[in-house]
């Protein structure tokens, strides 16, 4: 695709996951995950419910602890060292299915909170930064409202802007549109596409196959905690290799 050509992928490694395993008690959620993400890559993860997509994404910024294997983000090994965890979290932004905005803070305060307290940015600078990103997600006029006063689509865009305010080099999205009404999905996807065009490294768990075709340069299919298949979107959708992928795609695209 023409657009994709614009988005450069460098050779630099952003995330490198090797032989990673995770258990919930005795339940083996993630099995031998090997994944390398180049800087500037946009990866879409799909798979049936319960396949471990969210868990994988949440392991990358240590919201969940993995038990075996290694995760390295921007050259920092995700270990039990708090300093490393803090470093990785400050470089990785995350958007949740349910936005998780802070309801007691205004939009502007939601955005400036982390820069002020984590990056120790002076308040004024943090606010300028926040306004910059609010303009980017096209809702600067809502700065002084509270999350409860915004529509779902607007809230999710605020959540994206909140992550961006920490100026992350990698963004993780966990089903960012699945709690939204259809008419609001587009505004969020547009924001994400814009982000992709700017060369942000993105890892996105989503059921939006149109988005995957348009933006992703790799689609990963997970099932039962394993990466079953990964390929460029064109190939992935038109010529799936594994029978499990075929079944999944026929179910999701079939009707």
């Amino acid at each position: 695709m023409a657009e994709q050509a614009k988005m450069q992928v460098s050779d630099e490694v952003a995330i490198s996951i090797q032989n990673m395993n995770k258990w919930y008690g005795t339940f083996h959620v993630l099995r031998d995950i090997d994944l390398t993400v180049q800087r500037g890559e946009r990866i879409v993860i799909c798979g049936p419910s319960g396949s471990g997509k969210s868990t994988l994404i949440r392991c990358i910024n240590a919201l969940e602890e993995h038990q075996k294997g290694s995760i390295e983000v921007d050259g920092t090994l995700l270990s039990s060292d708090l300093k490393n965890i803090d470093k990785i979290r400050s470089e990785v932004g995350m958007c949740f299915q349910h936005f998780n905005l802070f309801p007691h803070l205004s939009i502007l305060e939601n955005l400036t909170l982390a820069p002020i307290w984590v990056r120790k940015t002076p308040k004024k600078e943090a606010e300028e930064l926040a306004m910059h990103y609010l303009e980017k997600v096209k809702i600067p006029d809502q700065a002084n409202k509270y999350p409860g006063q915004l529509s779902g689509g607007q809230q999710q865009r605020v959540a994206i802007a909140r992550s961006l305010c920490m100026q992350p080099r990698i963004m993780l999205f966990d089903e960012p549109t699945s709690a939204l009404d259809p008419e609001m999905i587009k505004e969020v996807l547009d924001t994400m596409i814009e982000l992709a065009e700017e060369g942000m490294t993105m890892l996105c768990d989503t059921h939006e196959m149109g988005f995957a075709r348009q933006v992703a340069n790799r689609v990963i299919f997970m099932d039962e905690g394993q990466i079953v298949e990964q390929n460029e979107p064109e190939e992935f959708f038109n010529n799936p290799q594994s029978p499990r992928t075929q079944l999944f795609l026929s179910q999701i695209l079939g009707h």
Binding site: L63, S90, F96, H98, N100, H104, L113, W117, V118
Partner: peptide, 29 residues
């Protein structure tokens, strides 16, 4: 909701910050 703790974590706030800035104001209310 658990999401509040997770959002605070993912932004890099530590326990004291998350508690004081995010959790307590809401829980007290």
């Amino acid at each position: 909701p658990k999401g509040q703790y997770e959002a605070a974590d993912s932004l890099g706030l530590n326990y004291a910050q998350a508690t004081r800035l995010i959790i307590l104001p809401q829980a007290l209310k």
